[in-house]
Structure formats: C-alpha cells, structure tokens
Amino acid sequence: MKGVSCRWLVLGGAALILLPFALELLLGNGWVRIVDFALLYVLLALGLNIVVGYAGLLDLGYVAFFAVGAYVYALLNSPQWGLHWPIWIALPAGALLAACFGVLLGAPTLKLRGDYLAIVTLGFGEIIRIFLNNLDSPINITNGPQGIELIDSLHFGSLSLGQMHHVLGLRIPAVVNVYYLFLVVVVLGMVFSHRLERSRIGRAWAAIREDEVAAASMGLNTRNLKLLAFAMGASFGGLSGGLFAGFQGFVSPESFTLQESVMILCMVVLGGMGHIAGVVLGAMLLAILPEALRAAGDWEQMVFGRIWVDPSNLRLLLFGMALVLMMLRRPGGLWPSNARRNELQGQ
C-alpha cells in the first residue's frame, strides 16, 4: 500500500516538473503563463477554503487580502517608494498585513452569520479597493488608479526569476521559473491546509461550522477561533497577492474587483467546500476554462462556417453554462468531502 502511493507520488511529481516544458512545446509559452496564474488562484482558493469551508464563514470580499499582499510587495519592491526589499521579507510582510486585515474584518462581523456576513464582507472588499484607488492624495501612497509599475520581478538574491536561465543546455524561460516557485508554494499551502484541517484547531472550526452554540458550550472560544480562521485565510490571500505583484510587474486597483472575489468563491464551492483536492481542482478548472474557451470563435467558424455570436460573448456564455451544468450535476461540488457528501445524501 505504502509502496503504491509512493510510486504515484513520484510519478505525479515528475509529471508536474515536466508539465511546463510539455506545455511550452505543444501550446506555447502563453499557456505556461496561464497555468502560473491558475496556481495563484489555487492558493487563493485554498485560503478562502479555510474561512468558508472549514469555519463556515461566508466571505465575499476575499480579494481584498489578495490586494493587500500585492500592494505590500509592490510598495516594497518598486520605484514608487524606491525600495527593493528581498522577497523573504516582502512576501511574509504581505501575508502578515493581510492577516491583520483579516482580523480587522473579522472583529466587527463576529455576531453575523450567513447572508448578513456575506454583505459586510462584500462591503469590506470594496472599501479596500476604493482606498487603493484613492490613496494618491494628499500623500501619494498607492499611485491611485494608475497603479504601481516597474515592480521588481521575484528574485532570490541575484537570481531573478524574471529572466531566462540556461541550465545544462536547457532554456528555462521566466514563466517556467515562476511556475516552479508557485508550485512549491501551492504544495506547501496544501500540506498546511491538510494539517490544519486534521488538527485540534481544525476540529474546533468544524464544530463552530456545525453548531456555534454547542461549540461555545463545549468551551470553544468562538471569537478567537473565528478570528484565527479569518487571519489564516487572509494570509494565504496576502501571499498569493505578493507573488502576483512580483510576477505581473504591475498592480492597479482594477485587478481586485468583486468579480474576482466571486470567482474565488465559485472555485471553492464548485470544487467542493472543505475538501482540499476538490478546491484545487475547482480553482484549476475555473482559472483555465475561460482561457481554453478563447478558441470558441474558431469552433464556431468551423461548425457553422461563419461567426454568428461575437467570440468573446460566446466564451462567457459557454463559461456560464458550464458553471450552471456543473452545479446542477454535482451540487456538493465536483469532488466533495465525505462530510458534505453525507449531508447531501441525507437530505
């Protein structure tokens, strides 16, 4: 048994290591970039899963933490403030500040549940975005709607991931470097999520999700535990934001709209709330599907011989239909956790 799972681990690991080269060969560099962004979404979805899936707190403003992480990295690594800090400070700083904002959001919403909580978190997400948009005066902090440009690419000392490298005669372009970094971070995120879920803390979160009154009566400090869930989830978001800023080289408030929050929530719900593998699958699928659907126009041309519907509209139409179909066919998510499956079968 152990030998078999070990072999799968090695095979899966090898496949993940070779994936960017295969993608580059078959589909071009653009697709490696798409997968890079998908990995950032996976990290976001894992973080939101802690809040929504584990602790059962609906959060519609999650992208705010992504924004905080992105701006911290951007400010610490760009001409905006003239700072160029190493990433082992900039990334944790972003995660930490995001965690603080998580507590800041959590504190006033402790008594709220369900729909009400969703509305307040939605407002919080918008507040952060509007702040970023307007903090260019009286003192210019975020450079307002223009955003922050010329952000240093992710780098370890003098080794920059933003350049092409040659290793043993192999060309390793920037998108592939970044892929490996993101992959490592995502795997760590999955391991940490898994450990949290199976820990004393994770069990307490599950208890709060199932019945808050009973949980409190068993001696659980529901306030601190909820704040911890918000902070943990937010730190994943902040980390993902820092990586995003370093990868993209440019951040502006436009990247952090409500639509992004909704998308991340969709990934969690569609994949399977509270189930790591499901959430990863959901995030990958929803991040990649819109890109894959860019070919919709070509299919249309091929099938009908002419363009009936504008390709970009057709793409969104198909994406929406795919979401509805998936939710109808698999209401507990594509790959639900055991508890979730039981719940749906019980009803």
Binding site: R200, R203, A204, A206, A207, E210, D211, V213, A214, A215, M218, G219, L220, A339, R340, N342, E343
Partner: peptide
C-alpha cells in the same frame, strides 16, 4: 445539538479542546 456531520469520536474530541 451534536456536530452532526462529524464522526462520533470527533464530537467527543471537540470536548477535549
């Protein structure tokens, strides 16, 4: 008021928190 979707053992384990 049990934690109805958790296992019987997990319910008691929460009590040890």
């Amino acid at each position: 008021r049990l934690f109805s979707q958790m296992t019987v053992l997990e319910n008691v384990m929460v009590g040890r928190h």
